[in-house]
Design a protein around this nucleic acid. Structure first.
Lengths: 133, 133
DNA sequence: CTAACAGTTGAACAGCTGTTCAATCGTTTG
DNA sequence: CAAACGATTGAACAGCTGTTCAACTGTTAG
């Protein structure tokens, strides 16, 4: 019983790339099974990129604000107590990730959320955050 | 009809903090309504922090891997083709955010996901990512 | 005890990121 | 047309981030 799954499937890695290539034991069966279940690289990259974009406080607040109402750049800047320039830069990033869309009305540009999943993402994240407080 | 909601509630902001404080029109009614609906600052910060932690490709992959199986540091490093040190650093960050937990077995440390919401977050994010391809 | 080794940690460093500032664009108004 | 102004953009810069490297800890095996 002292020799569970953690030892018997471990073999010296021939293509060891870890650290200074000491002898390293890896559970190859388990690892290759996990590799088979991983999402393809481009998908992982896009997921990471999406989370990253949501992971800046200014952008988080913009998303929250836009989930409550359609707003122009001035409104958002006033709301967040920051400059129109800073907001505009962040809105470009959100636009590029298709997280917000915009509508022009004369000189003004009104922004709103582009995607219904975003609210679900925030709801789920909120649930995690509020779990331990 | 040419004067819709975008103009009539806009007033010069007395506490204008945007740019060089030119005359700036803000829809105060709308803005204060949105402010009332915003989450409190610490909650926003924690949400942003959580997304940020998930927004690094290495950490994204670690989470994906751990959602498939419990793994030790060596397994993960082998899986991601990186060093144990790099993985260990990232695992510390994930641990601090209570996203992963660990279990020691002799010299080895086995990591697994700590939170059921994480899988939901990834599922929802995947849905967004796969929408436009 | 000593050697081996899985894992952690801190310092250093290169690369990235968000804000600021100034210049510019486009639309509206007088 | 010119002035006003909402919005965007690019450059610059400070601050942050992730990896690497080397040193270290703790456990196991001989």
């Amino acid at each position: 019983m002292q020799n569970k799954d953690s030892r018997q499937d471990r073999k010296k890695a021939p293509d060891c790339t870890t650290d200074t290539c000491e002898i390293v034991y890896v559970d190859h069966k388990k690892v290759s099974s996990v590799i088979r279940r991983m999402k393809p690289e481009p998908v992982v990259q896009r997921i990471a990129e999406t989370f990253k974009v949501l992971g800046d406080p200014t952008r988080t607040k913009i998303i929250f604000a836009l989930s409550a109402a359609e707003l122009c750049v001035c409104d958002i800047a006033s709301l967040l107590n920051t400059t129109r320039s800073a907001v505009s830069h962040q809105l470009r990033i959100l636009r590029n990730m298709r997280l917000v869309k915009y509508r022009k009305e004369g000189k003004m540009v009104f922004y709103s959320l582009d995607d219904s999943h975003i609210n679900n993402l925030f709801t789920e994240c909120l649930r995690h955050v509020e779990e331990y407080d």
